[in-house]
Nucleic acid binder design. Structure first.
Lengths: 132, 132
DNA sequence: TATAAAGCTTCCAGTAACTGGAAGTTCAAG
DNA sequence: CTTGAACTTCCAGTTACTGGAAGCTTTATA
């Protein structure tokens, strides 16, 4: 499929998809006319990149995670250790996102929605979980 | 407190803290010696920035979210609508993070950790939740 | 079949969000 | 009183895109 279709399916702009190719994150086929030709597997990689980037992982972290995906030459002990490291980080992100969501929910439910400017729960946004 | 302390407490490098001041995300006091002087409330803002940036929100989104925090002049209808918009996004991020975590967990538990290179569950990384 | 529009190509320049380093000032310890 | 760490500003470099020009290919319409 052409880059436009891959863009639609992955949620990434065509520009970004070409950039990811430049920096070696994927290597699509080329058709006879010179157009890039994306496989379903390329689209999977792209979707994965879209997701993990939007969740705050750097491109280099995504590259690591992608190396888990479909790289049969890699040793599974290595795979396991990378995955375990990322799991810790993901759990932290999950906790923080959950806290942020709860705060905003509280905000939405407890604020009046009219023009009264007192929303004292907003303090929670800074996440006073640990002692300060 | 000085920028070094604020950096420790917020988890942000001093460089980044100065940069956030440059782009108007906070406005700490200045001591007589010219040093920046951070209040606890500044640190809250910084911690919030650290978190939400690492969760994939852009600086401009953070600015919006920060406008919820401690801005008494803002109308609460406005606050509510911003918060509601962000809630949808946060829920999506939560779902994606959860899925990513499940995939990696599966990976960690099902791969042998030795040198056998077959980890077929890795496909899950692309998140085939919706039909393709 | 002509031709215009849409989609693709490369390349180069610009932006967002930092990040590193130089050069100088101030503070805290010995 | 001096040495080193921490602070200041400023400017240049990096990462991860993003926009636009100039040109080729495909597709839709007259």
């Amino acid at each position: 499929m052409n880059i436009g279709t891959a863009s639609e399916k992955s949620g990434l702009p065509a520009k970004t998809i070409r950039y990811y190719e430049d920096i070696g994150l994927l290597r699509p086929d080329r058709a006879d006319n010179g157009y890039r030709d994306y496989s379903m597997s390329d689209v999977h990689r792209l979707r994965f990149l879209q997701r993990s980037r939007s969740l705050g992982f750097s491109v280099e972290e995504c590259r690591q995670l992608l190396s888990l995906y479909g790289d049969n030459a890699r040793e599974s002990a290595d795979v396991k250790s990378i995955a375990e490291t990322k799991l810790v980080e993901i759990d932290r992100k999950l906790a923080e996102l959950t806290e942020l969501r709860n705060t905003l929910r509280h905000l939405v439910h407890n604020c009046h929605g009219d023009s009264r400017p007192d929303c004292p729960i907003i303090d929670g946004l800074s996440g006073r979980t640990q002692t300060q």
